[in-house]
Design a protein around this nucleic acid. Structure first.
Lengths: 224, 224
DNA sequence: CGAATTATTGAGAGCAATCAACTGATGTGG
DNA sequence: CCACATCAGTTGATTGCTCTCAATAATTCG
């Protein structure tokens, strides 16, 4: 099974990229600009295809009612969004741009056809699903056993791992407290109060790391 | 991509079975008898391979501490257990027999080799992961938004869908209240009290179905 | 038959959601 | 330029759900 490393800084399919595949994506030229706050697709809509994120940030979320949602994951440049829809007729989740984003759209038919002729891609995608499944199962456990503060703290650390820190050690992404709450499985006010505690200097230790908040919307993570 | 329907009542890989694959499994002849309560593998152990369940019931669970666990899913005859370990070095979850079970063990190396020569199998397995991911994401959402009673009720209905009902309309599996609690993400006592409510005739409506409990350990589900 | 384990039930504590009030910022019309 | 309205952000008080703990009852097992 061929697996070729490539020279891209970040490439699709978890850095296990396949040259032909990248080329095919390139040929598509279905580049779309998605405005901040706009959906890529919504839960229940007919599956059209997948989106390869070139720039921006996207949240994948699942609805409960209006006003109530759960964020399942965040996607950053190099990630694929919409693959959960494969094999089904409607998307089981929604995806919304958190910042102005550029994506490459690939139709489901084209993607399926590529899978058929490229077993290596199928294999890579299988591992992508397997990895997501493991992460989701761990979150399931944490949701049951950890209390809210720990979950918010863990969410912040996960987010800092995902997006990285800028030169001032701030998390390189702008999220609302509501987004963080939806990701940690809690309420806006609870996140707010926890942040206030952190600002007051009450340092919480989580997995050997310490978190401190500096400004609203900009989070600094200090590794202690 | 070949997908052949087969004459087995229930076959592996979600009924999308592949004849050569079944034959290979058959050639393995690594049939093992697992006693009730015994583990097939434990979280953190080195990945040896997968288990194809011929008979019995198995729970896949993830540990928090001793005494505290979360049941991720139940496996019945025809299901595969241990595939979460693929691609990693240690199992991210544990699997334990809930009844005396018969399994066919397939080593990871053998399985990986089969994947390489059988793209159709890889494709099927990919969909298996995708389906599990969707289910797990829904559970994640329910855990956040539904309250305990609803979760227990939903768990019972899921279990009845999975194992089916016998001629007396009892769920065709024996689970302890602790197992149901671990699956619904709650405590033994909470499940106990909810069951007591149901027995007292307080009928709870969930998704158009009604649940009534008759005897400890034996659950009757009445579709209303 | 007695001990040990498991089931049952009630009372209480604690945590987080909910609700509502307050604050300050921004905008709008006079 | 000010008075007022509006809205998001902030905070405290309250409620209610679920876990926890403990005490008693029942059952199993040697």
């Amino acid at each position: 099974m061929q697996t070729v490393t490539c020279d891209m800084d970040r490439c699709f399919l978890c850095r296990n990229c396949i040259p032909e595949w990248k080329q095919l994506i390139g040929l598509q030229k279905n580049t779309l600009n998605i405005r901040k706050g706009r959906p890529l697709f919504r839960e229940g809509e007919k599956v059209e295809g997948l989106f390869f994120l070139y720039s921006g940030t996207v949240k994948v979320h699942i609805l409960w009612t209006d006003e109530k949602e759960m964020i399942l994951r965040f996607a950053r440049p190099g990630d694929i969004v919409g693959y959960r829809g494969l094999g089904g007729d409607v998307y089981p989740v929604s995806a919304t741009a958190l910042e102005d984003s550029v994506v490459c759209f690939v139709s489901a038919e084209f993607f399926e056809a590529t899978l058929r002729t490229n077993p290596s891609l199928t294999y890579t995608l299988m591992h992508l699903y397997a990895g997501e499944l493991q992460k989701t199962e761990r979150r399931l456990r944490d949701l049951v056993h950890k209390e809210v503060k720990s979950r918010v703290a863990a969410a912040l650390l996960e987010i800092s791992d995902l997006f990285g820190l800028d030169k001032d050690r701030y998390i390189s992404v702008t999220l609302t407290r509501q987004d963080i709450a939806s990701y940690a499985g809690t309420r806006y006010e609870t996140v707010f109060k926890f942040f206030a505690e952190l600002e007051r200097g009450k340092v919480i230790s989580t997995e050997g790391k310490r978190i401190r908040i500096n400004k609203p919307e900009r989070l600094r993570v200090l590794v202690g």
